[in-house]
Every structure is written in C-alpha cells, then in structure tokens.
Nucleic acid binder design. Structure first.
Length: 306
DNA sequence: CGGCTTTGACCAGCGC
DNA sequence: GCGCTGGTCAAAGCCG
C-alpha cells in the first residue's frame, strides 16, 4: 500500500499559534507532536522549540481540510452509563436474603459454611468481572491523549487541578517510574500520567486523558492584601491560568480531530523523535521566560510591573 | 480523622 | 499458551 502518495507536509510556527506557553504556575508547556494510533490513543512523538517550524509529517492530504474542525469524543457518557449499570446491579451482600436464609438454618455446618463462602466468592468474582467488563469497555472507547513535555525538576507539575495518585509503575527501558493520577473531582474522569524522559531526565512528560467537566478548583486569590505587587502577581496568575485552560481545551479539541493513519510508535522511532527535538530544547525555557508567550498572554501594563 | 501516597497484586492486551 | 508490559485496584501507612 503506497500511503506516501497521499501524504504532504504541514507547517506552522510554534509561538504564533496558541498551542504553547506557560501554565499559570510558571511551567513551560510546549506543543507536542503527537500521533493517533490505531487504538485512538495519542502517542507522543516529540516536542518543538518555541519559534521553530512545526511539521506534521505524513498527514494525508484529504485530512488537512478537517483538521480545524474540533471533534470532542463524548466517551464520558459511555463511562457514566457503565457506572449506572454497575449501580443497578446490586450483588448479594452478607445481609442479603439468600445468605441470611442460609445462616438461619439449624443445619449449619462446615459444609454449609463452605457453600456460603463459595457464594460470597462467586459474588465477588461477579463484581470483579463486571468491573473488568467496564474497564474493557473503557479501553475500547479510550479518550484521546494529549502529551506535554516540560523542563522541570519537579515531577508532578501544578496545573490548576487537584489530582490523586492511584498508581506507580516502572517503565520499560527507563530508569524513571511512571505515576498515574486521577482528577479528584467526583464527576470528572480525567487522568494523567507523569514520567521523566529517559533521553533527558530534566524533562517531564505529562499525558492528559479526557476532559475536565468542571472549572479548575485552584483559583488564585486576589486583592487580599494591600500590597500592589502581590495583587498584580495574583491577577497575572489568574489571567495566565484562564488562558492556559483555554489553550489546553483548544489543543485537546484540535488534536482530537486528527486521525493519523500510520503507526510510528515503535520505541526506536519515538526515541529518535525525542532525541531530535530534545537536543534543541535546553535553551528553550530561558529564552521563553524572557521573550516567550507572556506577551501574548499578559496585558502589556502587567508586564511593566517590574 | 480525612485525604493522600505507597506498593504489591491482579488482569487484559499483545507479541512471540 | 506463555511471558511481558501497562493500567488499575485496594489495603496499609503517612501526614497535617
């Protein structure tokens, strides 16, 4: 199959789009080159330097016209349906009729206790299977992922949302573990993975999955002190936070609309992409801090505060 | 005591 | 079928 005949390069410049910049807490988030695999999962290919030319390789020509059309995957509904299904299925508990009738029988003996235990075990297995079925279902309709690479000494970067860590795994071919976080908001199903790049340990790779169904709970306080500098800093933080959330939403929507036909996600190709891009990345943070997107994000009068 | 992290165990998917 | 890996669960422990 000669796929390359239908492929063309797409170019843009990082920095004149709204797809990269600082988050409200001063961490630099760059636009990442990602790929949608056959499973619908966004795979990280690399990160671009501010001001560099962005190239989407291997995008089929017919896809270009649809790229600007945001398409949000409504799999949150699917998950909610699964949850209600689970809630409606009320398994027999130790207080349920079947088990209590057995326990009130006068002929209670070891054999009987065994059957009760077996029944409990079976019910537990049923619940487990149901949970697994839900998980499997979730996997089939997995949310697109968006990955960010950030130069930071801190693994878990503040992004305005509250997260609960639910897992940690060693990653193959990497000395750094991967941490799994879930948004603490009850109705929100957003997850994120955090790991360090094995090619450059100073870079943290944060992968978001899903969309928040609520505003950020971390709202910087403003005007609580009479200190004009502190008030200005809070205003700046709030402004940046709002802008960052808009950026994330836009980025997510845009990437969700992409559909890449090829799978470049072999470890060696990802490593190559990371190597290629990371080698230019060292000077990015300092450059951006002075000349980066702050001008776009912050009103000019705020920048004159110093 | 509630919220959070740690950590071992479990399971599904995938490649061989 | 088997082993490896990623993702998740849940009990235990920690901390403010």
């Amino acid at each position: 199959m000669e796929k390359k005949d239908t492929v063309m390069k797409m170019e843009g410049t990082i920095g004149d789009s709204s797809l990269s910049g600082y988050n409200p807490f001063g961490n630099l988030f760059d636009f990442c080159e990602v790929e949608k695999s056959s499973l619908g999962i966004m795979e990280l290919l690399g990160v671009h330097e501010y001001g560099s030319t962005l190239q989407f390789p291997d995008i089929p020509q017919q896809r270009l016209s649809t790229m600007s059309v945001p398409k949000v995957v409504p799999s949150f509904e699917t998950v909610r349906e699964c949850n209600s299904e689970l809630l409606n299925h009320r398994p027999a508990t130790p207080n349920s009729s079947s088990i209590s009738s057995a326990s009130t029988s006068e002929a209670v003996n070891d054999e009987h206790n065994k059957t009760v235990d077996q029944a409990e075990e079976e019910e537990k297995n049923k619940i487990k299977k149901l949970l697994k079925a839900k998980k499997t279902n979730q996997k089939k309709h997995r949310e697109p992922r968006v990955a960010f690479m950030t130069k930071s000494e801190v693994d878990h970067l503040e992004d305005g949302y509250r997260w609960r860590k639910y897992g940690k795994k060693a990653v193959k071919n990497s000395p750094f573990p991967r941490s799994y976080y879930r948004c603490t908001s009850a109705s929100c199903n957003v997850k994120k993975r955090v790991e360090r790049s094995f090619t450059d340990p100073s870079i943290v790779v944060t992968t978001y999955e899903g969309q928040h169904t609520h505003p950020s709970p971390v709202i910087p306080r403003s005007g609580l002190t009479g200190d004009p500098d502190i008030s200005a800093a809070n205003y700046l933080s709030q402004y940046q936070q709002q802008h960052f959330q808009q950026q994330q939403q836009l980025l997510f929507n845009t990437l969700s609309s992409l559909s890449f036909p090829y799978n470049h996600s072999t470890p060696s190709e990802i490593a190559f992409a990371q190597e290629r891009l990371v080698c230019n990345h060292g000077k990015t943070a300092a450059f951006l801090r002075d000349h980066g997107l702050l001008q776009d994000v912050v009103p000019s009068h705020m920048l004159k505060q110093e």
